[in-house]
Amino acid sequence: MRRMHRIGSGLPAGDGVAVFNRVYLSVTRELQRRLATGWFTDPAGAEELGARFAGRYLDAVEASRRGSRTPSCWRPLFHFRRHPSVHALQFATAGINAHIGHDLPLALLETCEARGCEPDALESDFERIGDLLTGLEERIREELMPGPDLLDVADPLTHLVGSWSLEMARSGAWAAFRALWGLRGLPELAADFAQRLDESVGMAGRCLLTPLPPLPRCGRRDRAERAR
C-alpha cells in the first residue's frame, strides 16, 4: 500500500489515475482486513494473488511515469487522465475495467504457476475477492456520482457507466484465465490471446472515457430531496 500512497500523494485530486488510486486503496485496505480475519479459504494464496494483481497496476503507473510503453488496457486512463470533460466515476470505472479485465487473468495465471496449483484451487477465493469488489462498487458509484440521481437513466454519465458490468468483467476474467491456462503448452497462441485481451479491454476503456457535457451541480442533499 505504500506505493499506492506515494502515487496518490504526488498527483492532484482530479487526476484520473489519482481517482482510481483512491478507489484501489480502499479495496486494498478491505482486502488486508479480511486477510487478517481469516475470511479466505487459503490466505497465503489470496495474499499472493492480491500482490501480483496490484503489482500489474503499479508497474503500469511506473511505466507511464517513465514514458515507457504501457499495456493497452491502461493507455486510455493515462491519456485522458486530465481531460476536463471526463468525470471521476468514468476514471474509476475505466481503471477497474483495465485491472479486472486484463490484469486479473494474468495475475491468476502467475499465481497458479508460482504455487504449482490448478485453477480450481483459486476459484473459491477468486469468488470471495469478487464479492468484496461487488460490495464496494455501489459505494464507489454513490461517492463519485456528482450529478443527478442514479435512477436518472437519461443522464449520459449514468447511461455510460451503466453499460459496464463488474459481474460480467469478473466472469470474463475467470474465462480468460482458464483459456490462458489451457494454452500453457502453446506459447505463441497464449501470447496472441493475451495481446488481444489487452487490446479489447483497452478499447472498452476508451469508450468508458468518452468526454461528456458538464453535469448539473447537484449534491447529495439535492438528490435526496428529488427522491422524496
Rank of each mutant, 00 (worst) to 15 (best):
H5G: 06
D125I: 05
G38H: 09
R196F: 09
T210Y: 09
E199A: 10
G38R: 06
P156F: 04
A169W: 03
L197T: 05
A36H: 14
A107Y: 07
A60F: 11
D125C: 04
R29L: 13
T134P: 04
S68P: 03
P71H: 12
E199S: 03
G14W: 03
R221T: 14
F177T: 02
R184C: 12
A224I: 15
L108I: 00
D125K: 04
G219P: 06
L212K: 10
S124G: 00
E167W: 02
C207Y: 10
L31I: 15
A44P: 05
H159K: 03
F91R: 11
V19H: 02
L108W: 00
D15F: 13
L122H: 00
L109V: 09
G130D: 05
D15G: 12
A121M: 04
D59I: 02
D15A: 12
G10W: 01
M168D: 07
D42K: 07
F177L: 03
W174Y: 15
C117F: 00
P119G: 06
G205V: 15
L208W: 06
E199Y: 04
F40M: 11
I100R: 07
L25W: 04
D192K: 06
V61Q: 11
L180Y: 03
L136W: 01
E48T: 07
L122F: 00
P71I: 12
A194C: 11
A173G: 14
P156I: 01
E110T: 09
V23N: 10
A224P: 07
Y24K: 14
C112F: 08
L144D: 00
D59K: 14
T134E: 07
